[in-house]
Design a protein around this nucleic acid. Structure first.
Length: 563
DNA sequence: AAACTAGGCAACCGCGAACGC
DNA sequence: TGCGTTCGCGGTTGCCTAGTT
């Protein structure tokens, strides 16, 4: 950011800088030295790099003491972590990285640091900024945040976890898979405990809720797993998901985050849905993005515990119908019922506690979905055995190209009227958006439902779910590999991400440039976030991932469809 | 050419967990 | 066990730049 001379030294010079702050960085002791804030200079970077080389990372508060750097420890750590440490990957987010980010976010929510652990060379801040930017872009475009397969993936994982682990706690499940289903998913539901007249206890999370939210409700059009309240963080390895438990499930609902004067909004925030002004039951369900107009979370794509939805926020958002690509006809014959009505029905008839196939930890919404699955199972279980077995060995992407399209469509229609406790049919849940072959399309720009015959993919997923629910417990965690969107995306997963990260021409980190950056080369730093226009540019442009290439690939992005 | 606007990024802040004594 | 410190995460803000009017 700052193009200052490398020769500029900071210690003395910056004392008179307007950037100087009276404080000393969140109150940390600094011996009365006024600490600098604001952009880092190359000289400061050099000092910090030298210090870390000599003393290693950590003990950041000692940096100021021993290096003469007038920065607080936090600032040093942040600078080091985000800009100076080795192996940082510069440049635009690659398509593979974007896919991974999307999936990770769908799975863990706004856990940027943990997401960063799976994106070598990327920082949490970078991912966070990217996501926020992406949210804005997609909201403007009226596009859903998540591809359908991501939501399905979460569902499948959850079901597989459930079946392969029985009634073991979530913690065990997660450990078993070295993967975490986000605690944040149910937080929005937990928030509603006590807000709605009746909301069953939502003690933990389930990917089914992702599906319910993401596919079966308007939230799909802007759904981000909400972080309604800060979760108890568990120290965990930077490279593993394991060890995270759902310890928050017994916490009381975070009502303290809801101001007293927002009760009117609270009632309409139930399940993240809010239609305070829209009497149209269709639009209630089909808000193209951030469908929850009253939901802050869907307004900005982030779920801030400190910012409950307000009427003001509602006004800031365009009505859903202002997004022309929202083609409600794409819902097909089974237009989903008003979700709010579904919620009402749910409230009036809460599921019995002894609902079959239920984990004691799931939610009423999950009950509903399982109910759907059961209904499907009752009709298809026998005949679908074969297809199920094949389904489990195929990615959803494969299914979309499979031969089961017609039959699936039939099934789809057949069960579209199946009413769940939620009042939502399974078909309505899955018909909101249809997936595309993600190996061929940008995740950001998959076309509307009518473009692709993808509904059978959804149904396949349901069938698979049904199968596992019916006791085929030989579906083990190893199957997760197939259910990973990465697999269907033909990309590497987690530990292998380094490979693809480095395989991308044009985004491959140049060690020399990094070294120059680490040494405070302002030029290199200032170019850090410019897209590499090398041989790999074609890849970026061709796919249209990343902010830098967003508008460069109309063949993929369907820019013409954007408002 | 100037003013305005939006996007993108870096940095800061508040909070809570971990750690050490 | 309690307390203070350190560390790190997530949310937010502010600045710079590019594009638009």
């Amino acid at each position: 950011m700052t193009n200052e001379s490398d020769n500029e030294m900071i210690s003395k010079d910056c004392t008179g800088s307007p950037l100087m702050d009276e404080g000393n960085c969140d109150g940390s002791a600094s011996g009365g030295v006024v600490l600098k804030k604001g952009p880092w200079t190359s000289a400061e970077d050099t000092i910090l790099v030298d210090y870390v080389r000599k003393h290693g990372e950590g003990n950041w508060n000692a940096v100021q003491k021993h290096s003469g750097l007038f920065r607080c420890g936090k600032s040093c750590r942040l600078r080091w972590a985000n800009h100076l440490r080795p192996n940082l990957k510069k440049g635009a987010i690659t398509p593979e990285e974007e896919r991974l980010i999307i999936e990770l976010h769908a799975t863990m929510g706004n856990k940027w640091a943990r997401m960063a652990a799976h994106l070598p060379g990327r920082t949490d801040n970078e991912i966070k900024n990217y996501w926020n930017t992406r949210i804005k872009r997609r909201q403007r475009a009226g596009l859903p945040l998540y591809p359908p397969e991501v939501c399905l993936q979460a569902l499948q994982e959850n079901e597989q976890n459930r079946n392969s682990n029985g009634d073991r706690g979530q913690h065990d499940l997660l450990q078993a898979n070295s993967y975490e289903i986000p605690d944040v998913i149910f937080d929005s539901l937990k928030t509603n405990q006590g807000v709605l007249p009746y909301v069953p206890e939502l003690p933990d999370i389930s990917a089914s809720s992702i599906l319910l939210k993401g596919l079966g409700s308007s939230q799909y059009y802007g759904f981000v797993p909400p972080v309604v309240h800060r979760q108890k963080r568990l120290r965990e390895s930077a490279t593993s998901y394991s060890g995270y438990d759902g310890s928050t499930r017994n916490e009381p609902p975070p009502f303290d985050h809801i101001p007293d004067d927002s009760c009117d909004n609270i009632t309409t925030q139930s399940f993240g849905l809010s239609f305070p002004c829209d009497p149209d039951p269709i639009t209630k369900n089909l808000l193209p993005f951030g469908g929850n107009q009253g939901s802050h979370s869907l307004l900005n794509g982030n779920f801030s515990a400190s910012k409950p939805a307000t009427p003001v926020a509602v006004k800031l958002e365009l009505p859903s119908l202002q997004y022309p690509e929202t083609d409600f006809s794409s819902w097909g014959s089974s237009s989903p019922p008003a979700l709010l009505e579904s919620v009402d029905a749910f409230i009036q008839s809460p599921p019995p506690s002894g609902t079959d196939c239920l984990s004691p930890r799931n939610s009423g919404l999950l009950d509903a979905l399982l109910h759907e699955a059961k209904a499907l199972s009752a009709k298809n279980h026998v005949s679908d055995k074969t297809s199920n077995s094949s389904t489990t060995s195929h990615t959803p992407g494969d299914v979309t190209h499979g031969s089961s399209l017609d039959t699936s469509k039939t099934k789809w229609e057949e069960y579209s009227e199946s009413i769940s406790p939620l009042g939502n049919s399974a078909a309505s849940i899955f018909s909101e958006r249809t997936p595309v072959s993600v190996s061929e399309n940008s995740l950001d720009e998959y076309p509307p439902a009518e473009t692709f015959p993808g509904s059978n993919m959804m149904l396949e997923a349901v069938e698979q779910k049904v199968w596992t629910l019916d006791g085929e417990k030989n579906e083990t965690a190893t199957q997760l590999d197939f259910s990973r969107p990465d697999a269907l995306l033909d990309s590497c997963w987690l530990g292998q991400s380094v490979t693809y990260a480095n395989d991308q021409e044009g985004v491959t980190t140049d060690a020399a440039a990094e070294a120059a950056t680490a040494l405070g080369d302002d030029d290199s730093r200032n170019n850090d976030y410019k897209p590499h226009m090398g041989a790999g540019t074609a890849l970026n442009q061709g796919w249209g991932f990343g902010s830098c290439t967003w508008n460069n690939m109309p063949s993929v992005c369907q820019i013409s469809e954007l408002p």
